[in-house]
């Protein structure tokens, strides 16, 4: 975020000798990293920090709204959340928590070594942090992949029996970057449960988009209550990749849990990816030796960002994995 500015070399002549840098009002020649509109490195550092904290405040509110959505949905149907939480792998979630905590540690150590001007140690720490981020995403990928295969997803797809291969295929498709809404989505004839219309996908001109909306939830409820309706192609008792549809105790509306689960962990995952880009940029600059004990602000600010990613996960983990 900062570049070393080229200063005219006659600065020394203009200002004579310098006192201790931190108290010098005209330290621009002494501190090549100092921007022209700042008087001292301390002022520049404090500005950067405050700016970053304000940005983190926006991140907190950004995630905060999703936490509010979580709280509202959960307050409405706590039984859904404790039921659906069973489908999340606590061990993988806990492992990810540890990975993120350790990567936060290496990031904090990186800031320490940057402050001490230890270039090699800084680069090593940044690489370790990067590895932690990558590890987190790999573990997350396995979690997602397993769930999507088992139709543990948001929306009406949740109620498609996993044995229905076509349904699973579509669920996977759905999880990928989508096309613009198609003209009409064929509702699989075999699946009685997804009588819920794909509201978002249907043109409003299609009368069915309006009328069935009111029966939608009842359709979902039927799927839950009546196993025969819910899993027409899988007789009760048949071994299936995912058992959620055959669980008679399943409360209706579990798809909402997965909606908020994917929304929150997905947004968090995006932040991890952004964090990796930031760390990569820091690694490049650190390898070039651009950071000294006088000037390490980008490392510090990148670190703050990485810690907030960790901090969000610290809350996501118990709220999703530990509530049954």
């Amino acid at each position: 975020m900062t570049q070393i500015s080229a200063q005219p070399s006659d600065q020394h002549g203009a200002h004579g000798s310098h006192g201790h840098g931190g108290h010098d009002d005209h330290g621009h020649s002494q501190y090549p990293f100092l921007a022209h509109h700042f008087a001292t490195p301390a002022q520049q550092f404090d500005s950067g920090k405050l700016g970053m904290w304000l940005f983190l405040a926006t991140e907190v509110l950004f995630f905060g709204a999703l936490f509010v959505a979580y709280a509202v949905l959960r307050a409405r149907s706590p039984e859904v959340f404790s039921f659906a939480s069973h489908y999340l792998d606590t061990m993988l979630g806990g492992l990810n928590t540890c990975v993120l905590i350790l990567s936060s540690l290496t990031m904090a150590l990186g800031v320490y070594f940057a402050q001490r001007g230890k270039k090699t140690a800084l680069v090593v720490c940044l690489w370790l942090t990067m590895a932690g981020a990558a590890g987190f995403l790999v573990i997350k990928y396995f979690e997602y992949e397993h769930k999507i295969h088992a139709n543990l997803v948001w929306g009406p797809r949740f109620y498609i029996p996993p044995a229905d291969a076509a349904g699973s295929e579509e669920a996977i498709l759905l999880s990928k970057a989508p096309e613009p809404p198609p003209a009409a989505v064929p509702v699989p004839a075999s699946a009685a449960a997804p009588a819920v219309p794909m509201i978002g996908a249907l043109p409003a001109a299609d009368a069915s988009a309006i009328a069935p909306a009111s029966v939608g939830p009842s359709g979902l409820k039927m799927a839950a209550v009546d196993p025969a309706l819910a899993t027409p192609s899988v007789p009760p008792g048949t071994e299936s990749e995912s058992l959620h549809l055959e669980d008679a105790s399943m409360p209706p509306g579990v798809h909402q849990f997965f909606a908020i689960y994917y929304a929150m962990t997905g947004l968090h995952g995006v932040h991890v990816v952004v964090g990796m880009i930031v760390i990569g940029w820091l690694i490049i600059r650190a390898s070039r030796g651009e950071f000294t004990s006088n000037y390490y602000t980008p490392v510090d600010l990148g670190g703050l960002y990485w810690h907030i990613v960790d901090l969000v996960w610290i809350f996501l983990f118990p709220l999703f994995y530990l509530i049954h």
């Binding site: 840098g21 931190g22 002494q30 090549p32 550092f45 320490y112 000294t292 004990s293 006088n294």
Partner: peptide, 23 residues
């Protein structure tokens, strides 16, 4: 210049700005 200031900041193991948190 850069060299001198680097010396300035880290001569006592402390950065010019910010707080050093021990390992």
């Amino acid at each position: 210049n850069a060299h001198t200031t680097a010396g300035h900041g880290s001569h006592d193991g402390h950065p010019l700005v910010g707080h050093l948190v021990p390992i």
